[in-house]
Nucleic acid binder design. Structure first.
Lengths: 117, 117
DNA sequence: GCTATATTCAACACATCGGTTGATCAAGGA
DNA sequence: TCCTTGATCAACCGATGTGTTGAATATAGC
């Protein structure tokens, strides 16, 4: 899954809050309703409801219908899109580091050779 | 590298801005100074300087000294800490999905057997 | 229909964020 | 020493985010 800039904005902003991260952690173990998600936190249900809306707008969760409940479900593909974005730049950096290292090693060996000549 | 809640707050918030993400992308190809990082953007150097401070406070970059320049360097381990956090919950969710799927498949086969009995 | 429960909407307060301008600091070069 | 360049600090402004309270909506169950 590839995402645009706005999607990344919303997703990373959604993860930049400990309450929402805890909800993600909870939802990884199975679906949960607003009330269930609210339980661990000392904040109002309305605040929790809005956290959920932020996660949904980011595409990190979806919601189904079960009578008057609206259970939340984690969307693993949305999480994967984020790690892909991050990994692209991490891997490029690590490749660059390795090239630099090899270059330095080569230069050192060359220097040794010059000295023992 | 494992990080605490504040670190995750700062890191994800740092990534929740297109300017800072573009800086990350640029830095993956090599170190750069404030002026170099500022070049692509229609904002003041001061604003760029503060974006850099946000990235540094999050631990996503470090800075060295080269005369009056302060080149920025990406920290791949910090990026890796973020993907690790995300992957933990994505993988748990995917495992759960697979278990559910297997369960459903088992139930369907059971049902078929009952019908042909 | 009535009431209880689950959830959301609306309006507000307060803090933080991302930008600006103007001043300041630090290092290099003539 | 003086001037230039790279970078930062400080104060301010408008927008956004996160919480609150109180009212509204929707579904379940009697």
């Amino acid at each position: 899954m590839t995402v645009d800039d706005d999607q990344l904005d919303r997703s990373f902003a959604a993860l930049a809050d400990p309450v929402r991260r805890a909800m993600i952690a909870r939802l990884s173990r199975g679906p949960a309703t607003v009330n269930e998600l609210a339980e661990p936190f000392p904040i109002t249900k309305q605040a929790v409801s809005r956290h959920i809306q932020v996660l949904e707008a980011a595409g990190l969760i979806t919601r189904s219908r079960d009578g008057q409940r609206r259970p939340c479900h984690l969307v693993p593909a949305a999480l994967e899109a984020l790690t892909s974005w991050i990994d692209e730049y991490r891997l490029e950096t690590e490749r660059r580091f390795r090239r630099m290292e090899a270059l330095l090693r080569g230069a050192r060996e060359q220097e040794q050779k010059e000295q023992t000549k």
